[in-house]
Simulated assay, not measured.
Amino acid sequence: MDIEKALEIVRHKLPKKRFEHSVRVAETAVKLAEMFNGDKYNCELAGILHDYCKYDELSEMYQIVIREKLDPALLGFNKELLHGPVAAIKMRDDYGIKNDEILLAISNHTSGRDHMTLNEKIIYVADYIEPERDQKNVDDIRKIVYEDKHLDLAVYEITKATIKHLLKSDKTIYPRTIECLNYYNMVKE
């Protein structure tokens, strides 16, 4: 799929604000790909498409999880976690994207995982630090990425912040996210 086609399908599906976020994630991902020697095209495409299913019906998402035999633990979570894995399936099935680098980056941008590929890490981080994000620690993460040039440390700090937020909100934490935290805690040095 070319970039213009991706922009077109996302523009027609997502609300204007979410579409604009997706464009900023793609732009940030390209910048990170240049910094860390990632694949600029794969990162741009994954950035545009990452939130494609953000507003889909939860029941439809559950059906896809079951049909595709995805991790059954996903059935205990909501759209915030499910939209990534479901978007990857839809991109593969509905739009013919077969590139695993793109599909993994879309799938895991919501949860992270241990041993992420470079492009997965880029999308995971770009989604968190795109220019309009203003969460509490985002400037610290931007410094880690842009000044210290430390992608694994950024993944760790983002995952840690996410888990802290989920604990504070008394929400269940997806096991893969905990595995991501533990793994990047070990490799962040």
Score class of each variant (00 low, 15 high):
Y52V: 05
A154L: 10
K160R: 13
R92S: 13
I97C: 03
L75P: 04
H165P: 05
Y62P: 07
M61G: 03
M61T: 02
I122G: 02
P175C: 11
F19R: 03
I89T: 09
D94L: 11
P15R: 09
I66Y: 01
Y183W: 14
D170P: 08
A87Q: 07
P85T: 04
N119S: 01
L181E: 11
Y128N: 11
S22T: 08
H115T: 11
P15D: 14
H115I: 07
P72Q: 04
Y41P: 00
I129V: 07
L14S: 01
A87Y: 07
R133Y: 03
Q63R: 10
R11Q: 14
Q135H: 12
A46T: 00
D93G: 07
H50T: 11
N108C: 08
K143Y: 14
T110R: 14
E57M: 07
K121E: 05
C43A: 00
Y124F: 12
E4C: 12
R11H: 15
K171A: 12
E101A: 08
R11V: 07
T177Y: 07
S107E: 14
K40F: 02
M116F: 11
K168A: 15
L167T: 08
L45K: 05
N185T: 14
L75H: 04
R11E: 15
F36D: 00
K31P: 02
N99V: 02
D148N: 14
V138G: 02
K136G: 05
L181R: 13
E34R: 05
V30P: 01
Y41K: 00
N119W: 00
S111A: 08
V86M: 00
K5R: 12
K121Y: 02
R142D: 03
E60N: 15
R142Q: 05
E179Q: 08
I141S: 09
H83V: 02
L167A: 11
V30A: 07
K121A: 04
I163V: 13
R11K: 15
L58F: 11
D114H: 05
D71C: 13
Y183S: 08
Q63Y: 10
K160F: 07
G47A: 13
V138C: 06
K160N: 11
